[in-house]
Nucleic acid binder design. Structure first.
Lengths: 255, 255
DNA sequence: CGTAGGATTGAAGCCGCTCAACCAAAGTGG
DNA sequence: CCACTTTGGTTGAGCGGCTTCAATCCTACG
């Protein structure tokens, strides 16, 4: 239909100002007048279908991508050809930061479901960041956050048992969904058990068994991809998080 | 002695221009005239003794630190009080990047041996980076590299067996020593077996056994902390690296 | 309705952890 | 200078958690 065409064309230039993800994304802390500049270099790509590739390992870095809707996974291929999931990404998160180092994407990014992303030419972003202190600061913060997140996952993979890994994973998803205005207690897993296992360094069977066990323990309720969290504190206990929230931090408060 | 005092005072302001680590550190790619500005905000702290703390988890972020000599480990404490090593850092590497996110150091940094670091006030660095595109770019690159490194470690921890982890660890150290002008084939481990195991998600005993096995297989020679690498390709085979160098990348080539 | 891919469940085996003893090197104090 | 202690490392035995292999079930989709 032509009407959808018109909408697509209109939506091509994205307005960060009116975007609900503003406070989770690059614009956080950036003054309104500077936001227009940022909007000027960002374009919204057309919606992606499940399994569409956003960029591929080996591609030269041209743009960073901000997830707008849907979810995305990133993975590398080992030299023996098997896939290793490095992350799942929700709306407001930035993709491609690991490519800045040598100008080449080390991993592939792929839509887990119908999704859309904003496209940010990296050299323009860099140039704009140089002229916009708050933007530069927010870019650094986002990269720092990614480092923190990875460190957290490293300790999970290196030191925690399978139940702790899965509990932490669920809590992390719950938090991230919550921050985006979705329910913290009920959500759909957009990734397969296999992908979860791959990400957490566990066999598919172990993931499945743990989910069943959590359900038997009354911690969660599982219906295929749909998860209901019944006992957050119980999960926290298992994840080894006592006082404060299950980390893998993201901020809302401005700097 | 007064003579050492004089040297210390002289050394307090550090000259990046004459530093042998220039091409591994922040100054890479920064024009000579801008280097003076960078030098202007960097000071060299006095040498550290083994086990001296550079910053502690929970400290507010005031400075980033560049390792100048010696080696440093970073670690977090889990809520049950056990230590989890997040990295070992050699000269030219930047410490504290994970603190930018929320302005607080999530981990503690501690000298593994006699060491020295350059101190870089973060707010000044940020401000200078805004006025110096090459510096901003290099800062982003270094953070991106850290993300890549962490991703690499994640796949190691999540998917590889103990022998592959240790082999990759040795190869990685070998590379990093090599890039700093030290031998790639012979070096001292400045960290204990326990710290290696902690970092790689292995028990101390496993580290010890693997080192013995590698020695029996004629891959390396171990004398307490001193390691001689006899068969790089053999180690690569075990690490699961075929074509290209054992990753955990660092660049020398300018942007 | 039939098929395929994903998910679950069970059984068996192995890798790496735990526990424990022993050893070596480096301090430490008399 | 030597006994004693401490710290870090090695080696062995046994166990357990997770993987692997395999069969079955479920659901989506043609």
């Amino acid at each position: 239909m032509s009407s959808t065409n018109v909408t697509n064309i209109k939506a091509l230039k994205q307005a960060c100002k009116t975007c609900g993800l503003r406070d989770l994304c690059l614009p956080l802390g950036v003054a309104t007048e500077d936001l227009s500049l940022l909007e000027g270099i960002i374009s919204r790509k057309r919606p992606l279908q499940r399994r569409d590739v956003i960029y591929q390992a080996g591609d030269p870095l041209t743009c960073l991508y901000a997830v707008r809707t849907g979810s995305v996974k990133t993975f590398v291929l080992t030299n023996d050809g098997e896939e290793q999931v490095t992350g799942f990404h929700l709306p407001g998160e930035l993709l491609g930061l690991d490519a800045i180092n040598d100008g080449t994407h080390p991993c592939t990014a792929l839509a887990l479901e119908t999704a859309s992303v904003c496209e940010i030419p990296f050299h323009l972003l860099e140039e704009l960041a140089g002229r916009t202190p708050r933007l530069q600061h927010q870019l650094l913060r986002i990269m720092s956050r990614e480092i923190q997140t990875d460190e957290h996952l490293m300790t999970l993979l290196g030191h925690r048992a399978s139940d702790a890994r899965l509990a932490a994973f669920l809590l992390n998803l719950s938090r991230r969904f919550g921050m985006r205005g979705f329910s913290r207690h009920e959500f759909n897993l957009t990734m397969s058990r296999c992908e979860i296992g791959n990400y957490l360094g566990l066999a598919v069977e172990t993931v499945s068994r743990m989910l069943s066990r959590f359900q038997d323990q009354g911690l969660i309720q599982v219906q295929r991809k749909f998860i209901i969290i019944l006992d957050v504190d119980g999960l926290r206990e298992i994840a080894g998080v006592h006082g404060h929230e299950s980390r893998q931090s993201e901020q809302v408060s401005g700097s």
